[in-house]
Design a protein around this nucleic acid. Structure first.
Lengths: 181, 181
DNA sequence: TTATACATGTAACTAGTTACATGATTGA
DNA sequence: TCAATCATGTAACTAGTTACATGTATAA
């Protein structure tokens, strides 16, 4: 299970509850390599406990549900290191945007325009997120590298789209009737 | 099911068997947005048949298993167009490479070097694949856009890695003993 | 002779998502 | 007052992968 390794990774940077791990992944640099939901995190954490890779401390809070803060055990750190050393899997991208763009010529131009604008806003949001991480300060050379890498790619996307979107709309004829033939 | 739309998309560019669809996705531009295996394709194709979105013709071949070539019906084309018009989902990247690089400082430098070299080779292979598609000629402005986009991003990755890999290895002290503490 | 390409399909398994269940606090 | 944030967890479902089953032809 991949969620386990992700939790191990998140916890290696500091103790956290399941809820906090989600936030770390969603808003931090870890999120550039993977995504994960609560329903994967909570079972994964139980699993880590079972395997002796993490320990837990329960905190009661007033007017809030109790918080369970997890901490890596030495075994947990070893296990993470072992997982990190394994050969990498091939990177995968699942881009609904590119999928749609492949068929730009059979879609109404306004729809294509909208998809492009949505993508550009997405890129802006990602860049803003990276800036936030950068402002908080990178704590390792790895984090700085990943932040820079992610930013470079987002910028390359934005530039390419800005330079080439005219190819998709405007120069070409009609929309929907093309597909019906 | 996503595999259905992918098959619809592949078939919209010409009749094909399940085996051929796999090849189209793996080696063509469609593969930059999604991946898929045989065991997703064959059930998806049966489904398309059931729903009247595709028709099939069986060819016997000497010394080869019989081939079932699928063709989109008009309903199939409409269905594809409908799916394409829907708002796009957010693009997702699952990068084992970035995940590992985040922890470069606790990995042995040689391991990090190897991961970087593997990633660079991966990029080369992807660029070569795009070139092959380009040489075969793009048949729509969408294909040209996607080919260019994918190439631009791969180049941005390679450039960033070339310019910044020194941050990860060399300047920093030790490997494995750091994690044991 | 060994691996790869050709070609289709099912069964079992893995991993992840969505929806459900519960409920106080805080900010707009 | 309405949405969002805090906080944990389960059940049901979706989607995809790996392994299995079968077998010929061709290129290295």
């Amino acid at each position: 299970m991949d969620a386990k390794i992700l939790c191990l990774a998140a916890l290696s940077q500091g103790d956290a509850s399941g809820y906090e791990i989600r936030k770390i992944v969603k808003s931090g640099l870890l999120g550039h390599s993977r995504d994960i939901g609560y329903s994967s995190i909570y079972p994964a954490l139980s699993c880590l406990l079972n395997d002796g890779l993490a320990s837990v401390t329960k905190y009661s809070q007033i007017g809030r549900p109790g918080k369970k803060v997890y901490r890596l055990t030495p075994d947990g750190r070893m296990s993470l290191l072992g997982a990190l050393k394994k050969p990498t899997e091939v990177d995968k991208t699942r881009s609904d945007f590119l999928f749609r763009m492949l068929f730009a010529d059979i879609l109404p131009p306004s729809v294509v325009e909208q998809m492009i604008d949505t993508k550009l806003r997405e890129i802006e949001a990602t860049l803003a997120r990276i800036d936030t991480s950068a402002d908080a300060g990178f704590e390792s050379p790895g984090e700085a590298f990943v932040g820079g890498y992610a930013a470079a790619i987002q910028r390359a996307m934005a530039n390419y789209i800005a330079d080439n979107r005219h190819q998709l709309v405007g120069s070409f004829p009609g929309p929907s009737n093309k597909v019906r033939s």
